[in-house]
Design a protein around this nucleic acid. Structure first.
Length: 957
RNA sequence: GCUCGAGUGGUGGAAUCGGUAGACACGUUGGACUUAAAAUCCAAUGGGCAAUUUUCGUCCGUGCGGGUUCAAGUCCCGCCUCGAGCACCA
């Protein structure tokens, strides 16, 4: 019997399933003494296309870590689930009328089948699906907690809203420092006299999730609102539809309250620098000052308005020669003089028509209008003209800037364009051509009153002091991060546990969770533009009996029955906390994850997934975890201790070249040269590893190729061109893991995907390279078997005799290297070292159990099926995954010799074989007494001798 | 424009503490076995020169130009190219 991977893999996948081999132990059930290790993959959205070979890359890496840690004696939590709410299932439902739940179920089953074939060690007893009511009841529950919380800036954490109400009742809101939109101050007495509705309105401004009329990114193509991270270059990430700004009443998450903590805590987690940088950019902290400018009252307007500006360079305040407001700024209409009114209004109209995208694309042209109004410079008291211009964004800072043409490029260009003053404020800097934006400490200020002669840092401190002392403003920190819009006009998402009474939102009671998605007859928005849930008949709340009821005529609601929220939650709701749910083994309804389990598992030790979630899922998860921590529901403040982004596996497309002169003529790649041709993608399954196209298969592929003619190479072969690009159906370059498992085996696939290169890196898939890892597995198999040539079979043949010292050395060196590489996450070099080991043992004709048993364990994380089979043949009753990882034996490794290069002044002259056992001094002695050394030195004395252990002896003379 | 990565044979990539490049694999070439093929095994494989009087010859080589060091793919300075993130953010 030779290495029959198909049979072996099916056998062990069945065994693992039946024996629940990879079930994690629970702290509450067993009081396990093992240390916990939590390895997690980003759970997939089960799309209809199924998996291609790129998808399992991260799963293979995490599976290797999970299996390795099990050998190391850890209690490993390695779960898997599905992020099963989402747009594609809904769009399919709109087209076909099929319920998204059915599509989702089908896709999940397909995914599971594909995943099983690769032999992952997931604990499937903990599987979760975000679209399952048993799961999303807790997503709704977390929403409720957010609704019932406010952010206290004094203690810098989220607190129960009840505590806020208590303060309001006793002392009003004057002393409260909170993240809020509430500006007016009220006393305790006033609060108590407010109507219940008014109180609710005020509380909504403090809640961590709140309802607000906000300008949102409306995507007409998708019929929904999108969060900032779902927009790339002004179009929707999904589908590439244009985005419009639109005012809508939406749920928002007050993530801005956590901006500073999200930024600061990046220092404490083991993520890649680039990913941290992405999040830092996204949070976009900038330190500066808020400065107030009074608007000078003209005869017609005497309203004593103030304009607040945010600036990072208050030190340049004496260079201000004008101010600019965003066209949307609320003061614009109030301050514009009648003479300028017409111009200003037409400019506002013109800019509002331009879409976000146009505005972004067109950063070159300078436009703006003078309002006719002037503000007073806080220090010089001189009048400063106020302009409006669309280079100032309403959404950032205060939507107004103090323009310093000498120190800011845009202000400079604007001033040049409209012939506004450019006061010089930097000593010795020529500002006739461009602004000076650097912060050189050697450049002193001039024409700046009390800042004259100071450098940037000195001026900054001085001016901030003065601004605060004179009450002109205050130091302020601004973030680019916006509150996250949490409403989607969709069907296939979590319903909000919210109903509306007098247009104010109220939570349904916790006992009524889950609030399940109602049935609708169609998944499209309603005629009057309401979300799909507006079609549901049974979607009203009966307050008295606390239950969902159907209403026939929504126009005329009976007493005590209220409409439920029609929006659903966005895709990131369910994925922002799922890592906690896996900890709760029995998926009980009473708790989202038990305290004991959470305290035991803590946070995810290793999280693997794509970097495309950097500003979405990975930020929101951190936000929710911090919130849950604040409210005492989570023992940890960060969800993912270590995070690794796996790179994409690219496909290798095949291209054939069609002659432009004769559209039925195809030219082999080697003969194209400078002929006029058009490249066409062809299915890679018709091309062999030598890039040769199967002409018959091609002719039968599509009717239009039926009578194709070919110009072939001299040997009659037709060669295709190759290009490396993303795997996609339209490029016919998708490689299916099922096919690879069938042809080469799952173990080969696993080894190969790791061997391909560093996990984090983008790399092209090449099926040709698989033969290398497959022949490694065959060699491994042969190490344990004796071939019977006459019968053409192989017989298990492992000797009970002691292994040779040489073989033990090979083994222990390999253990050392492999262990170190796995610990440092160099999963690709592990494969190389295993290959070297097997090659050497083959040469040494080693078949001793003493060596082969530990070797089997070493290989098990990478190639679990063959390892199980060999482990069983070695006479073990239990799975190899229960075996202890072998320890490396220093003794054997030390005894081995090493070739030392002997160098003179850094130049290699000869080499010596020396034992690793020797000390530095001993090596030095041997080398100095060696003939060749004396020959080189010719009687001279060397200055020094450098012995680098295990590496080199360098004689400096 | 700012920020963060990366650049090594024909190819994927090793070298992760500065230690004397190219591990491992693919591909290619040659050989063994075979009637043949597949499979398997062995050998060669960065470039040049020298040479087959012998294997431990020699020079050049890690994007480019400098520097530090006995020693640089690795550290420092200045560029070039590619990728990613942010981007009219005041």
């Amino acid at each position: 019997m030779s290495y029959n991977f198909n049979e072996i893999e099916a056998k062990w996948q069945k065994y693992w399933k039946e024996n629940q081999t990879f079930k994690a132990e629970n702290p509450q059930d067993k009081n396990t003494k093992k240390n916990p290790f939590y390895v997690l993959d980003m759970f997939p959205y089960p799309s209809g296309a199924g998996l291609h070979v790129g998808h399992p890359l991260g799963y293979i890496a995490s599976d290797i870590m999970a299996r390795y840690k099990r050998h190391k004696g850890f209690n490993v939590l390695h779960p898997m689930g599905y992020d099963s709410f989402g747009l594609p299932a809904e769009q399919y439902a709109i087209q076909t009328g099929q319920h998204p739940a059915i599509t989702t179920e089908t896709n999940i089953n397909r995914y599971r089948e594909q995943l099983d074939k690769i032999g992952f060690s997931f604990d499937w007893s903990r599987e979760i699906r975000t679209s399952n009511p048993k799961y999303y009841r807790w997503t709704q529950w977390i929403f409720m907690q957010l609704f019932n919380s406010w952010y206290d800036l004094k203690t810098d954490k989220a607190r129960d809203i009840k505590e806020l109400i208590e303060v309001f009742e006793n002392r009003g809101n004057a002393e409260i420092q909170a993240e809020t939109d509430q500006e007016e101050i009220f006393s305790a007495k006033e609060w108590r006299n407010f109507s219940a509705e008014k109180q609710q309105e005020i509380l909504l401004k403090y809640r961590l999730t709140y309802l607000a009329e906000t300008e949102v990114n409306w995507c007409p193509g998708l019929g929904t609102v999108l969060a900032n991270d779902e927009i790339i270059n002004g179009v929707s990430e999904r589908g590439g539809f244009p985005i419009e700004r639109k005012k809508m009443k939406q749920w928002s998450m007050r993530i801005t309250a956590y901006a500073e903590r999200l930024l600061k805590d990046l220092e404490n987690i083991d993520w890649t620098e680039s990913l941290k940088e992405t999040q830092r950019n996204w949070i976009g902290k900038s330190e500066g000052a808020l400065v107030k400018f009074s608007v000078l009252d003209s005869n017609e307007n005497s309203t004593h308005q103030q304009i607040e500006v945010f600036t990072t360079r208050p030190d340049t305040i004496f260079g201000v020669s004008f101010m600019t407001l965003a066209p949307e700024h609320e003061l614009v209409s109030k301050i514009t003089t009648s003479a300028q009114k017409e111009k200003v209004e037409s400019y506002i109209k013109q800019t509002s028509k331009r879409s976000e995208r146009e505005r972004m694309a067109d950063t070159k042209s300078i436009s703006g209008v003078f309002t006719g109004a002037y503000a007073e410079h806080p220090f010089t008291k001189k009048p400063v003209p106020i302009w409006i211009a669309d280079y100032v964004l309403a959404g950032y800072g205060t939507g107004a800037v103090m323009a310093v043409p000498a120190g800011d490029e845009r202000d400079f260009n604007f001033a040049k364009h409209f012939n506004i003053d450019i006061p010089a404020i930097f000593e010795g800097i020529d500002i006739s051509e461009k602004a000076y934006t650097e912060k050189d400490e050697n450049v002193k200020f001039i024409n700046s009153d009390f800042l004259n002669g100071l450098s940037h840092q000195e001026a900054l401190t001085t001016v901030l002091e003065k601004i605060q002392k004179n009450n002109f403003g205050e130091a302020q920190i601004n973030y680019r991060l916006r509150d996250a819009v949490f409403s989607r006009q969709r069907y296939w998402g979590e319903p909000f546990p919210v109903y509306y009474k007098n247009n104010l939102p109220y939570l349904i009671p916790e006992e009524s969770l889950p609030l399940e998605l109602p049935e609708v007859e169609k998944y499209l928005p309603t005629q009057d533009g309401q979300p799909p849930l507006g079609r549901a008949e049974k979607w009203f709340w009966e307050e008295k009996n606390q239950k969902v009821v159907a209403v026939e005529n929504p126009e005329n609601l009976p007493q005590g029955i209220y409409p439920l929220e029609l929006n659903t939650m966005p895709g990131w709701a369910g994925s922002s906390w799922y890592f906690f749910r896996y900890m709760e083994t029995n998926q009980r309804d009473e708790v989202f994850a038990s305290e004991k389990a959470m305290n035991y598992w803590k946070n995810v030790d290793l999280y693997i997934g794509g970097s495309e979630h950097a500003t979405g899922h990975l930020l929101y998860s951190r936000f929710w975890t911090k919130f849950l921590y604040d409210r005492g529901f989570s023992p940890v403040e960060e969800p993912f201790k270590k995070l690794i982004n796996q790179g994409m596996i690219l496909g290798e497309s095949a291209l054939i070249y069609r002659s432009e002169e004769n559209s039925n003529l195809y030219i082999s790649a080697g003969l194209v040269k400078d002929k006029a041709v058009q490249p066409i993608h062809v299915d890679i399954s018709m091309v062999n590893t030598a890039n040769e196209l199967d002409l018959e298969a091609f002719k039968n592929w599509r009717p239009e190729f039926k009578n194709a003619e070919f110009i072939t190479e001299k040997d009659g072969k037709f060669i295709v061109g190759r290009e490396v690009e993303k795997m996609s159906k339209s490029k016919f370059n998708v490689v299916n893991p099922d096919d690879i498992c069938e042809e080469y085996g799952a173990d080969s696939l696993r080894l190969y995907e790791m061997f391909l290169g560093p996990l984090e890196q983008e790399k092209p898939w090449s099926t040709a390279g698989l033969s290398g890892v497959q022949s490694f597995l065959k060699k491994l198999w042969r190490l344990y078997h004796k071939a019977d040539l006459s019968a053409n079979t192989e017989e298990f043949d492992v000797s009970e005799e002691k292994a040779s010292k040489e073989s033990l050395k090979t083994l222990h060196q390999t253990i050392e290297k492999v262990t170190e590489d796995i610990e440092n996450f160099h999963l690709n070099t592990v494969v190389s070292n295993l290959m070297i080991c097997v090659n050497e043992l083959t040469k040494q004709k080693c078949n001793s159990r003493e060596v082969l048993e530990p070797l089997t364990i070493l290989i098990a994380p990478y190639a679990p099926h063959i390892a199980e089979e060999l482990w069983e043949k070695l006479g073990h009753k239990e799975s190899v995954s229960k075996a202890d990882y072998p320890l490396f034996d220093e003794k054997f490794v030390k005894e081995s010799t090493k070739t030392y290069p002997i160098a003179f002044n850094g130049k290699k002259r000869f080499t010596l074989d020396l034992s690793l056992d020797l000390s530095k001094e001993e090596i030095e002695e041997i080398v100095m007494n060696h003939e060749r050394t004396k020959e080189q030195l010719q009687g001279r004395k060397p200055k020094k001798v450098i012995v680098v252990p295990n590496r080199i002896v360098n004689i400096v003379g």
